[in-house]
Design a protein around this nucleic acid. Sequence first.
DNA 1: GCCAACGTTGGC
DNA 2: GCCAACGTTGGC
Length: 154
Amino acid sequence: MATKNYWLMKSEPEECSFEDNLAARNHTVPWTGVRNYQARNFMRDEMRVGDGVLFYHSSCPMPGVYGIAEVASAPYADPTQFDTKSKYYDTTSTKVAPRWQLVDVKALRAITPFTLEQMRADSRLAQMIVLKRGNRLSITPVSAEHFNIIAARK
DNA sequence: GCCAACGTTGGC
DNA sequence: GCCAACGTTGGC
């Protein structure tokens, strides 16, 4: 059996907050809109159902981890790439060879937000990719140790 | 709104 | 393959 992996996934709360996710059917949402190859490759090639997810809010007054979630599906084509009305519509993608793949993400429980400021202040978390200068990647792998430190928050 | 950082595009 | 221009991310 493959080892469980852990991820940090960024979302703008205006678009899909952790509360939105928790309120969704089956507490599950498709992770639409990723248009970066590295982030796509994590979903397409490396995620497995049951992997742990730190649900992070970005571009908001208080960035940070707001909830614990898990990967809830195998990868499949992101439907928004074919939707002409979507801001994620991609004219260069085809149904035969979809460019963008996603997974479903299931919200498990909210935590007292572990803010970016608190993450930076915690020396145990110093090696997290999301804290590295200039990092913009919306999906990053997280070590079990870092995941557990943040997931221990009630 | 500013701007540093960095990914993508496209001319050559 | 190089690299300048451009667009986007995301904290502040």
